[in-house]
Simulated assay, not measured.
Amino acid sequence: MRTHIPYLLAVASTVATRRVDERLYGYDLTVRQYGLLTQLALEPELTMAELARQLGIARQSVHQLVNELVEAGHVR
């Protein structure tokens, strides 16, 4: 039987994300939201564009994540 490394890595990533999401559920956070909060804690002066670049996501996604965090009371 031949092992497909990319497939196995994708499965491992999915499982890991689910496990972390389960742990963060009690805090009303997702993995992406937690990553954004962590980046802001390290560099609070970052702009939305800089956050998007550092996190490797679109600016619109950063805006959505920030809005979600504000609504949940995690960010002011």
Rank of each mutant, 00 (worst) to 15 (best):
H63M: 06
Y7Q: 14
L51I: 04
I5M: 15
V15W: 13
H4N: 14
Y25E: 14
T17Y: 06
A10T: 11
L9F: 10
H4V: 09
R2I: 14
V70T: 08
Q39R: 15
Q64G: 01
S13E: 15
L8C: 07
R32Y: 03
A49F: 06
L51V: 02
Y7V: 12
D21K: 12
A58L: 08
Y34W: 13
V11A: 12
V31N: 05
R59G: 01
A58R: 06
D28H: 10
Q54Y: 02
E68L: 01
L37I: 10
A49K: 15
L8K: 14
M1Q: 09
L8I: 08
Q54R: 15
A16G: 04
G35E: 15
L24F: 11
G35F: 07
R2G: 04
E50D: 14
E50S: 12
Y7N: 13
E22C: 05
Y25L: 14
L29Y: 11
H74N: 04
Q60G: 01
L69V: 01
G35Y: 04
L24D: 03
A52H: 02
L24W: 06
A52T: 03
L40C: 08
M48V: 13
L42Y: 10
R2P: 08
R19S: 10
L29M: 07
S13P: 01
R53Y: 06
I5N: 10
R32C: 00
A10W: 07
R19D: 11
H4Q: 12
S61T: 09
L51F: 04
A16P: 04
M1S: 13
G73V: 07
E45V: 07
Y27G: 05
N67M: 03
V75C: 06
R32T: 01
V15R: 15
Q60S: 14
V15N: 11
G35P: 02
A10H: 09
G56N: 05
L65F: 06
R53M: 08
N67E: 05
T38F: 07
R2T: 04
E45P: 03
L42S: 12
V11C: 12
H74A: 04
L40Q: 10
Y25N: 12
V66D: 00
M48W: 06
V11H: 08
G56I: 02
